[in-house]
Every structure is written in structure tokens, then in C-alpha cells.
Design a protein around this nucleic acid. Sequence first.
DNA 1: GACCAGGCACATC
DNA 2: GATGTGCATGGT
Length: 220
Amino acid sequence: MSKNAIPGQIYRRLYLCYGPQRWWPGETDLEIIVGAILTQNTSWSNVVKAIGNLKKNRMLTIERLQKAPVRSLGRLIRSSGYYIVKAKRLKSFIDFLSTRYRGDIRALSRVPTGSLREQLLSVNGIGPETADSILLYVYNRPVFVVDAYTKRIFSRHRFFDPGATYDQVQRFFTDRLIRDARLFNEFHALIVKLGKEYCKKKPLCFLCPIVDMVPRYQGR
DNA sequence: GACCAGGCACATC
DNA sequence: GATGTGCATGGT
């Protein structure tokens, strides 16, 4: 088996084991984007409460979010942690959307992927993972999302160095997989599923059994 | 009480 | 370019 085929093999094993994850967990484009920002370095269960609060208070619209003061928005999303920072980040995105696209989330679907990624990255509070999550899960672009679990699991299995950059890790996968949004969608979700089960920071991710069934990638 | 969670911006060297 | 730090809640 070609070593380049290993990521695909791992994907298939994960899919067979866990089944489709049907991400992103969110009903609307706006909810996905809000969730992507709120889940930064935060467990999803804490984000669920915050989004629930936003919905309960009918705040999950572009207009309401735009009008809301940072402080009161912060109170609603308190459970997601870093709530002042995140309230500002939500408003940064809304400002971007309003200024450049008249508040129309779907208008972004006409923008080419590279340009859209650059624009998202220019928004304060949107880094590579958040931008790529939006590109993949809202706009269905074939962009591989790299998160902490991805780095941790695959570096511990020596697929790449723990110090690898976001772009390097992303390239590792995109160079070895068919460029397909549905594949990238499920793969990232399955990695998170696996990570939650086996790969906490400590104790040192005793090697995830499913990934370990696949021969190690030895070269570089 | 310590550790961890689906990051990011900013300061400093 | 690499490294360190602040941001903060809620579950285990």
C-alpha cells in the first residue's frame, strides 16, 4: 500500500467504525459561523448553551447581533468562555458581512475559495481553523480543517512533527486525499469524534486503536 | 483543585 | 519566524 493512501485508509476505518457524523451541528449558516467562533478552544457542550441562549433571546440574526452591545452579547454567550473576546469577534464578523456584503451570508457563496479565505482571515478573531470551518461547513468548499485533535493524533502517530504548522498539516492531508468537500467534512468530524474518545492532552494519547490499525507512516 | 476543551491576537525577542 | 501570554467557562 502506498503511504500516500494511509490517510484515506484511516478515513474509511473511522467511517466504518463511527458512521457519518453529519456535521456541522447547526440549523442555519449563521448558526454554524457563530458556533465556529464560539467553539474556539472551548468544549462544544459549553457552546451549545451559549447558542441556546442566543436563540432563546431571539438574538441569532445579523441585525440583532449587529445592534447588541458587546456587554449584553457577552452575557448571553458567557458559558462559552472568553465571552468578551468572543462577543467582539462575533461583531467583527457581522461588521465585515454588513460592510462588504450587505449582511447577506449567501452572497459570499459567489466568491472564489482563495479570495474568500483571505477575506475571512482578515476579520479580527477569525484564524485559519475558523475560516476553514466556515469555508467547508457553510460554503461546501473542499478545504481540510485542521484542529488540535488532528495535530495531536497524527503527530503522535509520527505522520508529521508535533511542531508542524497549520498549513503543513493541511497540506499533508490535501496532498493525499481526493479533493472532495463531503470527504473533508466527514473526516474532520470523525477525527474530533476519535479525539474526544482517545486523545486528551494527558495522558499522552495512548495510541488511538483505530488509527494504529493502519501501518505507520515512516517517511518524511 | 488541577486539568482540559473542535483558537486567536498581540507583544517580545 | 518562533515563543509566551491573556482571554474564562463548565465538565471530569
